[in-house]
Amino acid sequence: MKYLHSFWAVTKREWIELRRYSFNSLVGLALYIGMFAALFSGAKYIGQNNYALNDSLEGFLISYALWFMAMAAFSDTANSIIDEARKGTLEQLYMTEIPFVWLLISKNMISTIIFSSLFFIIVQFQMLITGIQLHVDIISIFVILFIGLFSLYGIGLIMAGLGLLFKRIQNLLGASQFIIVGVMIVSPTDIPLVKLLPFVHARELIMSIMRRGISMFQFSLYDWLTLFLNSSFYIIVGVVLYKLAEKEAFKRGMLGQY
């Protein structure tokens, strides 16, 4: 029950921050959509009515929206921990009997709901701008996102751990945007090992849902296992490495400094 109360407290805080700073979020969303419209117009102008290009534009549309999601998910964990350390609230979060990792997982679950909602809004706008029609099976997409995003939260935890110890890691976080672009582009069909990267398989499954209208119930056991194992692996590695960084931070007394 205690865990439920703490989950609810985190949910409420996220909602308060989202509502209070909604203008900022809306501007960010508008910029993303505006940038997409500009990129799409350029691509269309170059490709004219090329059928192959139209086909790849579908992929571009989904990849762009997923990139937004992945960026937000990945930086959310790292930035929020670094921000809490900077503000001085991180120590207070460590002063509860509820483990900090649970508070973090609670936050990630709420964030997934928020990011998924933003994803659906972006996709709707993109379809409106491009005239491309995609299959928006909300439940299937949400379930895949919910599981898949945990792999990126794992990477975010590694970054947060580095942030606790080395403080100024903004450049590293900035550079990682390009790595995520890579993750959104590389295809496991060409290089099968790519499937081991975080979120790649989730991206492939979402592509299948949106382009081919496949429901999550049609995915094979192999698909589900790959998705689960990929996310579990990265979140476990993330938690373990974060815990190591946390231990060092406890030793050096760096939890409240930034």
Partner: peptide
Amino acid sequence: AVLEGNRNIYWRMTVEENLEFFAGINGIAS
């Protein structure tokens, strides 16, 4: 504990919201 003066609270939240939040993360219902 109150550490480092008043840095340990959420400045963007109201007094009541802060109280509810800190009680909540300690596992106490609002």
